[in-house]
Structure formats: structure tokens, C-alpha cells
């Protein structure tokens, strides 16, 4: 197959719709529109270092970090259980585990909205026991819950796929050599599963730090994360320059975290829903 030019339409398309738009974002981030025209400046980035915006940035990273840790703690045992079940039941379990993921992301988040609100099911059940309605919605906890609920499968599936490939004889060898269950886990199983853990962490942290839907629906209109900040600049405020600067910072943040994690990912481990 000598025809190398056949990928040219694709390359032209990608340059037009991926490279050029990103260059435009970069261009907007380092300029401001004044009456005399466009001037180059770092003002947009400086604006981001104001305390209110730093707080938003910090809160986004903090919530994404906490939700990643919760997903790891909840997800690891689940991945171990899935990897450990016998073949016949395994397929059904995996199927049941993946199915809710195929439901629209917004509907899954909306489901929690109806559960947590003041007249929602949880408060109604609590009131049967004489407990006064709690403010479950529009706080950090609700946002965390939404993140964990939506992104938990992204943690479980990569870990599961690595664990199910671990050679059983390695574990048996460790047991034969006198290691107890705890030692087998800390010295053999867990180190071997690190590539999966690393992908899981990236796959949860990335959407968690960039989402603006979860904070908007479960955190309320006043709840601001970095994603909401970007959305507001483009949809409401119309300050593309500042919005672009935040986007650039977000991209750098993602690249750094992916760079750290990719050291542990020795192989590509995706969920592989389509085989």
C-alpha cells in the first residue's frame, strides 16, 4: 500500500478542528481586547491568581482528589471480587456493573438530585423516624457523591482488567513460601495491579476536575469549580480571554497529572467494552 496521501483529508480536518482551535485558545489567553485593538499581556493569568479564583482552583483539585481516593477505596475491593469470581457468574456481574454506565450521564446525576432534595426520598424516609429534613443538596458532600457515583466504574474496570490477567501461580507461589493473605496482597497482588490503579486514578481524576455538570446540578448555581468558571466566561460573561487562560491552566494541570500517572502505566489498560 503505497498510497500515503490517503490520510491527508484526515490530517487537514484535524489541523482545522483541533490544532487551530487550540492555537486560538492560546492566542486569546495571552491577549486582551482594548479600544486600540488587541494587545499581548499576561493579565488573564494574573487574574486567575486572585484569591477568589485560587480558591475555586484549589476546591476543584481538592474535590477531584478526594473523590479519586474514595473511588479507589471503594473500587479496589470491587475489582478484586469481580476478578475472583468464576467465569460463569463473572460475565453476568460485569454486565450488571457496566449497565448503569450506559445511562446518560445527566440522567444519572439528575437521579441523585431527586433523592437528595429537601422533599426527596431520603428526607421523607428520615422524617418517618422523626428526623428533621437535612440539607443534603448543594454542598461539597453532594458534589462528591455525584462524582463518586458517576466515575466509580472508571476506577473499577482498569483495575479489574489488570487483576484478571495476574498469573494465579505467582500468588500460589507466594502462599507456598509462607506468606499470609495480607502479605500476598501487599507484596504481590497490589504491586502487580499498579498499572490498573494508575489508569483508574487518571480516568477518575480527569473528568472529576473538569466537570461542570455535577457541581451545577448537585452543588447549585452558586457552587463554582474550575469547569463552571470556564463555562461562565464563555456562556454568560463573554470574557473569552480570561476563559481561555483558565482552559490553558486546566490543560496544564491535566497534562501534569497524566505525566505522573503514565510512569506507572506500563501497558494500555482500557475498559474494553467492545472487546
Amino acid at each position: 500500500m503505497k498510497i500515503r496521501w490517503i490520510s491527508t483529508p484526515y490530517i487537514v480536518w484535524m489541523i482545522m478542528f483541533t490544532v487551530v482551535p487550540l492555537l486560538l485558545v492560546f492566542f486569546f489567553s495571552i491577549t486582551v481586547q482594548t479600544d486600540e485593538g488587541i494587545t499581548f499581556t499576561l493579565e488573564n493569568f494574573k487574574k486567575l491568581s486572585e484569591p477568589i479564583y485560587l480558591k475555586v482552583l484549589w476546591r476543584s483539585i481538592y474535590l477531584a482528589f478526594v473523590s479519586t481516593v474514595i473511588c479507589l477505596l471503594l473500587g479496589y475491593p470491587m475489582a478484586m471480587i469481580l476478578a475472583g469470581t468464576d467465569v460463569k457468574r463473572k460475565n453476568v456481574l460485569i454486565f450488571l456493573f457496566v449497565a448503569p454506565m450506559w445511562m446518560n450521564f445527566l440522567l444519572r446525576t439528575y437521579a441523585w438530585l431527586t433523592l437528595l432534595e429537601k422533599n426527596g426520598l431520603i428526607n421523607t424516609v428520615l422524617s418517618l423516624f422523626g428526623i428533621k429534613p437535612l440539607n443534603l443538596l448543594y454542598n461539597n458532600l453532594a458534589v462528591l457523591l455525584g462524582m463518586v457515583y458517576n466515575f466509580l466504574p472508571f476506577m473499577v474496570l482498569p483495575i479489574y482488567s489488570v487483576l484478571s490477567k495476574v498469573d494465579k501461580s505467582v500468588i500460589e507461589a507466594a502462599q507456598d513460601l509462607g506468606a499470609n493473605n495480607f502479605k500476598v496482597f501487599t507484596k504481590v497482588t497490589f504491586p502487580l495491579s499498579l498499572p490498573g490503579v494508575a489508569s483508574g486514578i487518571t480516568m477518575v481524576f480527569m473528568p472529576a476536575v473538569t466537570t461542570f455538570v455535577v457541581p451545577r446540578l448537585l452543588g447549585g448555581a452558586q457552587f463554582t469549580l474550575i469547569g463552571n468558571l470556564i463555562e461562565r466566561q464563555f456562556v454568560l460573561v463573554g470574557d473569552w480571554n480570561f476563559g481561555s487562560a483558565i482552559s490553558i491552566v486546566m490543560m496544564i494541570l491535566i497534562l501534569i497529572s497524566m505525566g505522573i500517572m503514565s510512569r506507572y502505566e506500563t501497558e494500555h489498560v482500557g475498559g474494553g467494552f467492545f472487546g
Binding site: S7, I11, M14, I15, F17, T18, V19, V20, P21, L22, L24, V25, F28, M206, T210, F212, G227, I230, E231, F234, W240, G243, S244, S247, M250, M251, I254, M258
Partner: peptide
């Protein structure tokens, strides 16, 4: 080079892809 170009929209956060395309279209 081309594969890196291909990975770009995959690893780029959706919101950045979204706003960058919006800027392009309006531009």
C-alpha cells in the same frame, strides 16, 4: 506525529475541546 495529533482530542478535557471549537466557529 500524526498519532499524537490523534490522541490530542482524546486526552484533552471535553470542556476545552468544546470551547476551542466554539471559538473557531464564531471566529
Amino acid at each position: 506525529v500524526v498519532m499524537n495529533l490523534t490522541y490530542l482530542p482524546v486526552i484533552n478535557p471535553d470542556i476545552v475541546t468544546g470551547i476551542s471549537l466554539m471559538i473557531l466557529f464564531i471566529f
